[in-house]
Computed example of a mutant assay.
Amino acid sequence: MKQFKKISLLFMSLIMVLVIAGCGSKNKADILTTAKETKTINWGVKADTKLFGLMNIKTGKTQGFDIDIADAVTKKILGKDATANFVQVTSKTRIPLLKNGNIDAIIATMSISKDREKQVDFSNPYFAAGQSILVKKESSIKSVKDVNKDGMIVLGVKGSTSVINMKKYAPKAEVLELDDYAQALTALKSGQGDALTTDNGILYGMVKENPDFSVVGGTFTHEPYGIAIDKGQDKFKNQINKALAEMRADGTYEKLLNKWFGDIPGFSVKEASQQ
């Protein structure tokens, strides 16, 4: 009798696993279909990153290059009357929110990397970023080599590839991880670190609002940004890639790039647009 109960329990457990797996597969396959039915795509975006995604306190809306790209992609896929719905994410929360189904796609200064590709799929690159460092103008730091010393503190953001890269390029420095870029910049201003590191586009956004700081040393990595989609959604990814290609062809992409980065001193719009 006991043996029968064990077999029955194992059988029921197997059935539950198959049911759950089947439901998961169905949900993933239905995202593009649901988007077409609701005329809406739910995007995970940053709200603390100048030029890419920053909350406008007066209007309560998030603005930036990522926001405009997401809106344009949405309308390319679903039509001019479609809605791009924006959900605030951080470097730490964006993949979990995508995997949990809270958002359909991530467009949040997210670098394409082999480790991330184990969890999500990426669109073709839409922004050719590279990692650099931000310091106060009077700092003696001129490149990443200058922070590769004992006692140096470099500020970064949790969940970003920048932190991992810094441990590789400046292993002697201590890396202090903050929750978001606003906290990291505040820490740099208050002297809690010698430099702040992330992608150059994000750093130039900080400089635009904080002229007492500068981006130094050029870029020491290649960090192309991609739109992240959950695994198993090839049709959705293909539609996003098609939309990005159309935007490059009809001039929409170049227009948006110049809108947000055209007047930034030292920033190369041409290099940023390279795939």
Rank of each mutant, 00 (worst) to 15 (best):
A243C: 08
L18E: 13
I95D: 08
M12T: 15
L178W: 03
W260I: 00
D115I: 02
L97T: 04
S268C: 13
K26Y: 15
Y169Q: 10
Y181H: 09
D71W: 02
V147Y: 03
K189V: 03
Q63K: 10
D68N: 14
I31N: 01
N124C: 01
P265T: 00
M12F: 13
T186R: 12
N258D: 11
D146A: 09
K235G: 04
K142E: 14
G191P: 12
L176G: 02
K114P: 02
P96E: 05
A249G: 03
F261R: 01
G266C: 06
K270G: 01
N200Q: 13
S214F: 00
K136N: 12
K2P: 09
L178E: 09
N148S: 07
P224L: 05
D146Y: 06
K2H: 12
I41A: 05
L134Q: 11
A195S: 09
P211A: 02
P265L: 06
K172Y: 01
K46M: 14
A47T: 15
L98E: 11
K189Q: 13
I227Y: 04
G201F: 06
K242I: 00
E223N: 15
A82C: 09
P265R: 01
L51C: 07
I107P: 08
K172A: 06
V73C: 04
G217K: 07
A128I: 00
K46V: 15
K39D: 09
T59C: 12
V144P: 09
G156D: 11
L32F: 10
L134T: 11
G156V: 07
I264Y: 12
K114G: 00
K172W: 01
S13V: 15
G44V: 11
F127Y: 15
A249E: 15
V215D: 03
M16V: 15
L10C: 14
T252W: 03
K58F: 09
F122M: 06
G159M: 04
L51T: 11
K259P: 08
K149I: 06
L176Q: 12
V216P: 04
S139F: 07
D81Y: 00
L14D: 09
T252I: 02
D263F: 06
